[in-house]
Write a protein that binds this DNA or RNA. Sequence first.
DNA 1: GTCTATACGTGGATAGAC
DNA 2: GTCTATCCACGTATAGAC
Lengths: 193, 193
Amino acid sequence: MARTQGSYSVITSSRLREAALRLFAQHGYAAVSMRQIAREIGVQAGALYLHTPDKQTLLYTLMREHMEELLAAVPCDSGTPLERLERFCRFHIRFHHARRAPVFIAYLELRSLEPENFARIEALRNRYEAHLETILRDGIEAGSFAAPDAKLVTLALIAMLTGVTTWFRPDGRLDLAQIEAIYWDMVRKVLSV
Amino acid sequence: MARTQGSYSVITSSRLREAALRLFAQHGYAAVSMRQIAREIGVQAGALYLHTPDKQTLLYTLMREHMEELLAAVPCDSGTPLERLERFCRFHIRFHHARRAPVFIAYLELRSLEPENFARIEALRNRYEAHLETILRDGIEAGSFAAPDAKLVTLALIAMLTGVTTWFRPDGRLDLAQIEAIYWDMVRKVLSV
DNA sequence: GTCTATACGTGGATAGAC
DNA sequence: GTCTATCCACGTATAGAC
């Protein structure tokens, strides 16, 4: 039989990421111990340090990977501003719901990052927000949207859309498609001329 | 000279609240130690336990007091739905900015509360959200507002309005009065028929 | 009311056996 | 690659002197 050590390493690494994501999102970075994560994936605490140099790097890596996946998944900029806006809003709600755990972490654990790591994550977030801001500016310039301040509306809309993740339950009164439609309706009205 | 012990107690108690509010808001409940709070107000860690039975109760008390002050300060329900809505939105932005620290704690540290305390704080929050929802329902019934779902719009608007506290800086491009006006404009449009 | 001292658990991280 | 054992700092909370 061939060596399986490499395989085990990959498995444990991915299980470590999963468990850390879930536990950090649920209880918070500071409240979760490395021992707790290790117990969750069935290894001893010391073994975790084969897969991450330390706890802080583990947090930062999870956040960075999430932000990079988010940026890679943003829909392309084709069509009218209205079409682009709708695509962005529906994407935002769907993506953020599909990745609730990293979304919570990326929003709530910024303060747990050391300064350099914080700056890097913040830069990625600014790049994401710039996508929406660009759509708004293009729409305002074209006369399709009315908004007193593109930057402020960007921040307001992102806060509104992201808020869905804090209360949405799959077994609730409305499904995600309905919520998407209602939110899109609100966004459309905010920008209406 | 009269005894001064009672006075000292009151002073330390209020200094404890202030310091805990600030540190919990900045670093998170789990990341802040009782020793750190004590150092901040210039007493020994043991002395804190004269003013709070334990750390969890300290957190819960801060959150409960904040929510009760919020509920006590909600503007009264007089006038047209549109007037009531404007009053609520402006109040929300102003109050939440004035009390940024307890607001952060009330939103981010729900997961740090033990189940019974969590349930109590959640109940207070639901009472606050009900104020806005009632305004929306009254306005929809009167034909002043158009909204597909009063509950969802309530959650969306509160997320949007509360978001201001996460990025607003007094030395920024816009002052709070301008921001209030822009946000009120967005809210008005969301509800427009 | 506050201090000093301390009990006792648990945290992150590492060393060396297997 | 993982385990056991361990280091050492720090956590919450309490006891008893002043």
